[in-house]
Design a protein around this nucleic acid. Sequence first.
DNA 1: TCAATATCATTTCTTATGAAACGAAAAGTC
DNA 2: GACTTTTCGTTTCATAAGAAATGATATTGA
Lengths: 166, 166
Amino acid sequence: MKSDDFNLSYFLPYQLAILSSRISKLLSKVYGDRYGLSIPEWRVLVHVARREKMSVREIHKCVNFEKPTVSRAVSKLEDTGLVAKTASEQDQRLVEIELTEAGFDVLKGITREARSFEENILGEFSEADRHQLYVLMERLHDALDKHPEAANRPPMDIEARSDLLG
Amino acid sequence: MKSDDFNLSYFLPYQLAILSSRISKLLSKVYGDRYGLSIPEWRVLVHVARREKMSVREIHKCVNFEKPTVSRAVSKLEDTGLVAKTASEQDQRLVEIELTEAGFDVLKGITREARSFEENILGEFSEADRHQLYVLMERLHDALDKHPEAANRPPMDIEARSDLLG
DNA sequence: TCAATATCATTTCTTATGAAACGAAAAGTC
DNA sequence: GACTTTTCGTTTCATAAGAAATGATATTGA
């Protein structure tokens, strides 16, 4: 049996998955091979860096990973000395997580490499191209937001790069 | 410690991962909840449908999953009667996989729903918008192709939708 | 005030994935 | 024509992720 009905090559969900997977795998060579971090660890690290202190719950909402994944990532980062965990004074259930100096140093290194990685990929893209790309992705998110069954979109960070969104 | 150095909100690999994950999860409600298929199973099904017969190896190269994953997906699809496996006459190592009538029927249903899903997401996108989106994704793939360490890009299907690529 | 409920982080438990190992079959080499 | 090497598909094996359960603390309400 054979059918020409349907072609994955132009099916958006498939193309996005392939593209994202190729980029993620390549990027993971930066923080994985060189710094020994997993994807969840690296995401947690970046998010924690942008606040003074964060709880697992807060990170979970931002980072688009499940709570156990975040919890494990945080524990591992604590083991390697990149973050510090302390029980909250006001609410003993909460764990306050913050970057250590070592974590800050590592992040600085990875940040530099991540930026250069992105620049490498987007090298041939003009500012207009980048703007276009982000606007299109934004519109896709908007379309998803209208679906009641869609997963929540992680909140944007406050300080936006207005140079990109125009 | 706190740093405003780096903002994931505008980091392309992160944004792509989030977007792709949101869309994939939503789509998986179609083929998962309603048809009981996993992502690898659904991809295998579609790829096999486009050829008379395919080996595990061939599928593996197209589908962007590892060989064991493909092998398992095929076995499961055989169990549920959607594909048939036969040892090749010419080469006893190869397994020829083809869709059964039941597989064809299921695919027809999913295809319809997948199309309507995509249309639902891209509903507000004009033809020009879609073209733009695909061109930008294409350029990102091209940039990745230049990296020696990047994973191979799965080959495009032959019959391209020229209406999109212009 | 004390029980019932809700919230937070962690810990099972199950499942899925990919790397490496494996056995079978073909191709290459002498 | 046997021996080595390569290729194919499957099967371990180890690891990672999410669902559900757990334990601890807060909050609510009678």
